[in-house]
Design a protein around this nucleic acid. Sequence first.
DNA 1: TAAAAATACTCCATAGGTATTTTAT
DNA 2: ATAAAATACCTATGGAGTATTTTTA
Lengths: 303, 303
Amino acid sequence: MRSGPHPFTLRQLQYVIAVADELSFRRAAERCHVSQPSLSAQLAQLEELVGVQIFERDRRRVLVTAAGRDIVERARRLLVEADDLVEAGKRAGDPLLGTLRIGIIPTIAPYLLPSVAPKLRARFPRLTLAWREDKTGVLIEALEAGELDTALVALEAEIGDVAREIIAKDSFVLAMRLEHPLARKSSPVEASDLRGAEMLLLDDGHCFRDQALEVCSMAGECEFRATSLTTLVQMVAGGAGVTLLPALSLATEAKRARLRVRRMASPKAHRTIALVWRKRAPLEPALRELAGVLRETFPVPAL
Amino acid sequence: MRSGPHPFTLRQLQYVIAVADELSFRRAAERCHVSQPSLSAQLAQLEELVGVQIFERDRRRVLVTAAGRDIVERARRLLVEADDLVEAGKRAGDPLLGTLRIGIIPTIAPYLLPSVAPKLRARFPRLTLAWREDKTGVLIEALEAGELDTALVALEAEIGDVAREIIAKDSFVLAMRLEHPLARKSSPVEASDLRGAEMLLLDDGHCFRDQALEVCSMAGECEFRATSLTTLVQMVAGGAGVTLLPALSLATEAKRARLRVRRMASPKAHRTIALVWRKRAPLEPALRELAGVLRETFPVPAL
DNA sequence: TAAAAATACTCCATAGGTATTTTAT
DNA sequence: ATAAAATACCTATGGAGTATTTTTA
């Protein structure tokens, strides 16, 4: 156990992060609203303490050293946890009060929010939900950086070491025009049935694209890349090929475009939608309650 | 992103922990080598910041409030990570330098250390190993509290969310006197063969006791409790019954007491010995190397 | 009343500011 | 020559000290 005062300050860590982000002492100092010498002095002190150069002051620019990268990472985590500590106190009275910053992926948001958001507002009237729609990778990064409190994603994607609560299983179906040969097939569609079919997919970075590729046993040689399921469906309706859709989207997408849908045979043809958050997030009790309501109000897809 | 200086200090967290441990402002102040008013002031400031009472200053004593318990937990974790950050810097040059505090459970230590410790000393001459022998629960707590850098435990026990590297699989065998009826059995021993046999076990808290109970499908109704495998073996040799032993201990224990051993049929009759550490421990590179050497030099039990 | 925490104030250590020098292109 | 970080030195905030009061069992 340590006995004296703690040898460094959270302020120093803020400086470390600012310099790592800006790669300039002067700009980092501006960002922290302190003078450049003050920041320099604090960093020198921290480097002295840890016994290693964190930054390489090179000709005309600043670089993070190998050892520094580790320190910077730790500093970021530490500050997120420090903020969490304050947040935990503030929320101790009523966690269902204030603002909850919640991420959601684009292949869920438009199909879930219209029905669920009003219900959440009714159920948690004193909680303001700030939604942010982005791809899984971006959301998880924001979560770890403390910019988001929670996110709705698919567990099949790469989401790292987070706490989670499962909301629903969402099956995938193949969507095609009524005239398409596969539309007449009565049994579920096998990956082999897709040989030769023009498969349309989402853009890189969408977890649903990766899952679709896996379900169809494809390597990703398809060339067209849509930025939303709606675009994808319009392409299919226009006769450009077939596509995979999550059942969640059917009520909105397939019905609207008058497409035919068929179940997939593969047991992998589904995603598990879950609410995830940083381990030990201060809002965990509130998040579990939120997850419960999401699970209850999740729209059952009409297959 | 925060812009101003960080609203609290690590020092304040140290005070929080000291008070939580001592349940007295005066004693906490002594422990921190500050005056009681200084400590009071800092705590008042922190409580003001988080907007919640952390401690209940009751008549004649101090209590941690419900909200406070969470804050205290977070404070402890934060300080461990802060220490890790400094340590990470210091070890950046050569992680295999200095002192490594390593925990080990009592059912491994006496059988592994005599052969392995000298090899580790030879392999890592500049690394001092400080061994601490205790039950799994105690070691894991010490690990999380930053009092240990790593520990050798069985994965089958409750070890929480730690990083790990597997060292070896260690089978369990049944040990008995030569005169015991089971000593004549040629096939592996089933749990059902143990009906009526007097099974001797270790004390509560030893993970090996819990595993033995599970392997033998027993509820723990046995009354004698040994504090070490050696005691257990002496009891068996004295005719008090039979016991389960890890193969690792055979070379020392069964041979010495001239006992007969028989394999167990259950696939559960083994433990997985692993080196574990806090996630993101600064010594991770060193620990992985250490694990490699442990794996290579692990004594192969002669069954 | 006694033991412990809170309050009142004083002080000084140190984070931070300004001015300047050094360094590297 | 110039742009950026380091150095020198001064200032002032706030953490820590001592003395004292308040609280409650």
